[in-house]
Design a protein around this nucleic acid. Sequence first.
RNA 1: GGCGAGGUAGCUCAGUUGGUUAGAGCACAGGAUUCAUAACCCUGAGGUCACGAGUUCAAAUCUCGUUCUCGCUACCA
Length: 721
Amino acid sequence: MHTPKRYLITSALPYANGLKHIGHLAGAYLPADIYVRYLKAQKRDVVFVCGSDEHGTAIPIQATKEGTTARTIIDKYHPIMEQNFKDLGIAFDIYHRTSSSLHHETAQEFFTKLNDNGDLEIKETEQYFDEEANSFLADRYIKGTCPNCSYANAYGDQCENCGKSLSPDELINPVSTLSGNKPVKKVTKHWYLPLNRHEGFLREWILKEHASDWRGTVIGQCKSWIDGGLQPRAVTRDLDWGVSLPDSVEGGKGKVLYVWFDAPIGYISATKQWALDNGKDWKPYWEDKDTKLVHFVGKDNIVFHCIIFPVMLKLHGNILPDNVPANEFMNLEGDKMSTSRNWKLEMQDYIDDFINKENGGSQMADVLRYYLTQIAPETKDSEFTWQGFQDANNSELVGIFGNFVNRAFVLMHKLCKGKVPPLHLDILTDLDKTTIEEIKSTKEKVENLLEQYKFREALFEVINLARTGNQYMQKKEPWIVAKQTSDNGQPTTEAQQSIDNTLHICLQLCANLAVLINPFLPFTARKMCYLMKVVDKMLDWENAGKIKLLSVGYSLRSPELLFRKIEDSEISYQIEKLKAAVINRESSNVNKEKIMEEVTQPASEEKKETPVKPEIIFDDFAKIDLRAGKIVSAEKVEKADKLLKLQVDLGFETRTIVSGIALHFTPEDIVGKQVTVVVNLAPRKMRGIESNGMILMAEDSSGKLHFINPETNINPGAGVS
RNA sequence: GGCGAGGUAGCUCAGUUGGUUAGAGCACAGGAUUCAUAACCCUGAGGUCACGAGUUCAAAUCUCGUUCUCGCUACCA
C-alpha cells in the first residue's frame, strides 16, 4: 500500500452555541484522535485540525436568548469546548475558531477566487431594502397585502391566509418588518454555487472511484443526493453575523457568507494558523496530491463533506478527501440523544463526575474512550448504556487488561526480585513461541484494521492480546512452578528458568500492550511507561510486535492499578441523574433558556429563526376571530407524517381542520379535547383536504406542542379575545 | 409519502464473492485455581438470522412484498 507523504485529519467543527455530548465525541472526535495518534506513533507527517464553528444565525439567536451578544456566546463556549476535548485526550494540533481574522481572510480569499473564475453564479434581483435599518430584507421580513386573497399580513414568501407562494414583488403595499417603513426597491445580488455543473465529476469520483473504499452508508447518501438532482446553493446571505464578503466584490456590502460555505474553510484556516505557530508551510497539506485528507464526521454531515465541500475544493484547486469515515449516531439508554430534551451525557458532565474526582484522574478519560470505541456506531446506530459502561470497565479494562498487567508485575516482584528476568532460549516451549507469535500478529491485525477505520475491531484485538496474556500465564503457572524448591528453599534452577521465561514474555507483552493501546487509551499507555520506567518514545509504533522492549535485569516499579472498579452506586446515580434532568426540563419548560437543537456541524443548514414579529395595532388583532372549540373526531392524513384531519365542534357548526400535529398526538389522545381555533382564516388545501381554520398551539423549549385551551370546560363557540 | 441505511443469542455487535453443525465479547450456569482489583482460566447452555413469498442442488447472504428503527426530504397557517 502506498504511504502518503503527509496526512491532514479533520474533525467536524462543533457549533459554538452549547456544550457537546458524548455522541459527538464518539462520532467525530474520538475516532479521529485514535487515527491520528496511530499515525503519529508511526512518525508520519500528520496535522489534526479542528475548531469552533462560530457563525450562522443560531449564535445570535442564542445570544438573544441569553440576553447577551453573539461575541459573548462564542467567547463563552469556545474555551469550554477546547478544554473538554483536552480533558478527554483529544489531541488536536490546533483547535481554532472561525471568528478569527485569519479565518475571515481565508474564507474571503476562497470566495474571491471562485467568484473571479466564474465558478459561482450570480443572480441579480431587485429586492426590497429598508433604508432606516440599512439592510436588504429577506422575503420573510416583508409583509403586505396578498394579491390573491387580499389578506393584509401576507409574508414576502407566502401568504399565511391563502397559502399561496409569493415573491415580495407581488405584495401590495409592502412594509418592512424591521422598521415598519415602506421598503424601497434596490438591486441586490446573491452568489450561488452551481452544484448541478459538477454532477459528472461527483458521479465519477464518489460512485466509481470510491465505490469500494468508502463506507456503505456514505456512498448511499451521496448517491441519493446526486440522483435527486443537484441544485445551485446560495453562498451569500443578508446578515451581519458571519464572514463579510470582500470589499472588492461589487454589491457585496452587507452580505456574509452562508455558514455552510465558511465553516469547512475553517479546516484550511486552522491549518494555516497551525503552520504559523509552528514555522511550517501549510500549503502542501491542502495542495499537494500526496497528502491524504480524511474528514471525520457524523452521518448528518455526510453530504457537506462528500459533495459540497469537495466541489468547493476542486474549484479552488485543493486536494479532495481520501475518505470520509462518517459514523452513525449513538443513542443513550434506549433513546436518541438530544440536547433540547436533555437526554444526553455531556462531555463536561462526565469530566466532572468521573475525571475531576478524588478517585478519578485521567485514566477515567480512557475508560470513556474505551467504551465509546467499543460501541462506536461504525455501521449502524449504537447504544450507550451505563450498565454497558460499567461492564466494559469492570470486566475488560479491570478484569482482563489491568489485571494482567498487575499480576505480571506482582509475580515479577515476588519471583524475579523486581527485575526483568532473562529469556532462556534453549528451554522455550511451544506455548512460549506461539505467545510470542501472537504478539507479532496482533500488531499486524491492529494496523490493518486501523488503516480501514475499523476502530472497534482494532481495539478488540488489543484487548484480546491481554486475554492471551492471561491464558498464557494460567497455563504456565509460575506460582506453582516456584514451589519446586531445592534444599535451600529456593526454586530449582530449572524451575527458576521456567519462571524467568514466563515472566519475561509476560512483561514484554505488557510493553506491547502499552504500544498498541496508546492510540486508544493514551493516558493508560503513559502510566504503563511510568511503571516500566521507560520513556514515552517506547510507544513508537515500530516497537509493536517486538519482544525486546524491556532490557533484561532492568528493575521496574512496584505495581499500581491501572483502572479502578466502577461501583453499582455510581451507575445508578448516573441513571437517576439522567432521568431527573428530563423531569426538570419538562416541569419548568417555560421561558427557560432555549437550548438550540444539537448540531454536529460544521456545515448544516442554519436553524430557522423566530424573530419577534412587527408591531400591529389593535384593529389588526381584532380581525382575528378566535373561538373555543372541541375536537369531536380525528384521523391521520394519508401520505403525510405530520398532518391530522380533525372535526371541530364550534357550537354553530362543526368544521374540518387539518393540523400538523401528528408527531405529537395520536388521534385517540385528542378526541374530546378543548382547543382554541382561528375561525375566520381563509380555507387552505393540504394534501388534498380543505382545512377551515387553525388550531392554536404553543411550542415549548423542547419542541413539544401544547394545546392552548380554556382552564375549564366552556361551551364550543365561545369567543376568545 | 419519496430516497438512503439498518433489523442476527438476554445485551453490544461480526458474518467477506450464496456452500458443512450461523460466530465473538459481555451477562448467565457449572467446574478448576489462588500470582492477581471475589480478579483470571476451562466447559456449557442460547438464535425459525424481523415477517411472508420467490430464485437455487444450496439463502442470514440474491429478488419481490410486509413490518419496525434511524437519517435526509415532503406535508405543518
